[in-house]
């Protein structure tokens, strides 16, 4: 029979754990709210940029391929080039920390599945990682060659990170070292659900036509110049949106995981307390029996 002291010690330890999981849950709830606000705030810019690209898309793309003038415009035009996807980079977005349920494993699993699928078709797939978890998990699977070193997510989504990733990918793509670049990340569906999304970043396909394109635009200084400035920003904005989305999903996932952990701790404390009482009662009963039978032996 377990010692009373041991059980008490056990209960105390579970209670401490529960305090931690409760605190983490609350922190994540607060961060989730901020992450959602950030994601909402970033939307107008991304939306407008997409509209401009849609409006500019056809006109400028045609003009570019026909008589691209400046070297900058030529470089930008290369980002639209469709090639057979031989060498592919997948940018995997995860979190720096765990304690978020299947959040990180899901996205890494999706990325590895994508790799084996494409490798079966004869393509080479390399990874880049944002977030310590994806970097560590991908490095551990020996099959997965991590192209660039990968980087940490940091305490909040940084536009700088998105710009660096976009610049590196665009440079490698334009130089022909990559034929396609994909982004894999968790998407915030609602507080209870996260979904892994895989989208192609490069080559860029101009978004569908909008009504604005019917206007007779004037361009300053030129359609070429605007187009070549637009594409890198569009790429960075999409990666940034992915980071924001993943950050919100991460905190939603952690909130749920910690909620479940707190509840499990409660169940365990309850079960242990019951056990403790039984053991204590058994000990008391045993002592009474001893006293009674001792007395009976004396009188008998």
């Amino acid at each position: 029979m377990a010692n009373l002291l041991d059980i008490r010690r056990r209960i105390r330890s579970v209670k401490n754990t529960q305090q931690i999981t409760r605190a983490l849950r609350m922190i994540s709830a607060a961060k989730l709210r901020r992450a959602q606000e950030q994601a909402m705030a970033a939307r107008p810019y991304a939306e407008k940029l997409r509209q401009i690209l849609a409006a500019l898309g056809d006109a400028a793309a045609g003009a570019l391929s026909a008589e691209a003038s400046s070297p900058a415009a030529l470089a930008a035009a290369r980002l639209l080039e469709q090639r057979p996807e031989q060498t592919i980079r997948v940018i995997v977005i995860s979190s720096d920390q765990g304690r978020a349920g299947a959040f990180n494993t899901n996205v890494v699993k999706a990325a590895l599945e994508f790799q084996s699928q494409r490798q079966a078709q004869g393509a080479r797939v390399e990874f880049d990682a944002v977030g310590r978890k994806a970097r560590d998990l991908l490095t551990r699977f020996a099959l997965a060659q991590l192209g660039p070193r990968g980087r940490e997510f940091g305490p909040a989504p940084r536009l700088e990170t998105a710009r660096e990733l976009a610049a590196e990918a665009a440079e490698a793509f334009a130089a022909g070292r990559l034929d396609a670049v994909y982004l894999a990340g968790n998407e915030f569906k609602n507080v209870l659900q996260q979904r892994v999304r895989m989208e192609r970043l490069l080559p860029i396909t101009a978004p569908a036509e909008s009504a604005a394109s019917s206007l007779a635009w004037e361009f300053a200084p030129s359609a070429d110049a605007i187009f070549s400035a637009l594409l890198p920003r569009y790429l960075a904005t999409r990666i940034f949106a992915g980071l924001l989305e993943s950050f919100a999903a991460e905190h939603a996932a952690r909130m749920n995981a910690m909620d479940t952990a707190s509840r499990n701790a409660s169940d365990m404390i309850e079960a242990l307390t019951l056990h403790l009482n039984r053991v204590r009662q058994a000990a008391i009963t045993k002592e009474i029996i001893e006293v009674v039978s001792g007395a009976a032996a004396l009188t008998g």
């Binding site: 401009i52 409006a55 500019l56 206007l215 007779a216 635009w217 004037e218 361009f219 300053a220 200084p221 359609a223 110049a225 605007i226 400035a229």
Partner: peptide, 19 residues
């Protein structure tokens, strides 16, 4: 501030895309 100098814009301006 445009890429090549300042723009002054009043209502009714012609559609313009600029750096």
């Amino acid at each position: 501030p445009g890429a090549d100098g300042y723009f002054g814009i009043l209502p009714g301006h012609a559609p313009l895309l600029s750096l």
